[in-house]
Design a protein around this nucleic acid. Structure first.
Lengths: 131, 131
DNA sequence: TGTATCTACAACCATTTGGTTGTACGTTAC
DNA sequence: GTAACGTACAACCAAATGGTTGTAGATACA
């Protein structure tokens, strides 16, 4: 699944920062499962309503949650797409790692070739994955 | 791929917090690609050596990077496993989202059944995925 | 209408964060 | 041996973070 990752560095900062708090992660979990008002969410935590309200605001800024007015309430709904975005970002890092391994393998293959026979420019195309 | 996610909430805090800074993310990228000493890394950023040193320490605490002494240098190496751990955590959130959709589908199917015929306790087992 | 509920937001406070400079210490190189 | 290099770490500072209380505006309900 390709996710359009047109995020500024500041956006990514906000995304991971929002995830870097256990209360906020729990709010994400809950609101991904069952949408709830802020006051309903606040009942679950040992802190003031205003504190929970701030956490929801941080999550909303990061795109991990959306708020929808319903009467006097604000219904909080988790946004799975933002989770996908975060995963896509991490995929890029794993890709960097994998290409590094490939480069190392290619280098190793080249050296091995140089040791056994001599310069044969076509080295192994499919480098075996190492550890 | 199943990743053993035996992390405390504080560990997860550290992991995502470490990722919530563009300088640190860049250090992760670099060190996943090419291992480098701290002073080599420091050349790339418009801040003091000590500041980069602190960023590396934060990354090391989070497990995103390891340090290895080589002479007077400390070689920084990115840890792809930690990236995988973070992705596995996010997968759990997506799983919550998916099971919520399944529940909604099941509920909808049940209501539809009740509307068309009358009480038939065995509702559809395989709920169709919606949107 | 009046009251209770839900939310928004400001002001405040303690702690953490992200940066700095300075000093000390082990290692490398001349 | 001495000078230069790479690192560790402490002390300091401004800004951000995570919490609080208090006040005020909408909305629901008796």
């Amino acid at each position: 699944m390709v996710v359009d990752t047109s995020l500024s560095e500041a956006d990514v900062d906000r995304l991971f920062h929002a995830l870097a708090d256990s209360t906020r992660r729990d709010i994400v979990r809950r609101s991904l499962s069952v949408e709830a008002s802020i006051s309903e969410l606040a009942l679950a935590y040992d802190m003031s309503f205003a504190a929970v309200q701030k956490h929801v605001a941080v999550l909303e800024e990061a795109g991990l949650v959306t708020k929808h007015p319903r009467g006097r309430e604000r219904i909080v709904r988790g946004n799975a797409a933002a989770i996908g975005t975060a995963k896509a970002l991490l995929d890029k890092y794993e890709e960097i790692w994998r290409s590094r391994i490939d480069r190392l393998d290619a280098l190793l293959a080249q050296h091995t070739t140089e040791d056994t026979s001599c310069q044969s420019p076509q080295s192994r195309r499919t480098s075996p994955r190492s550890r």
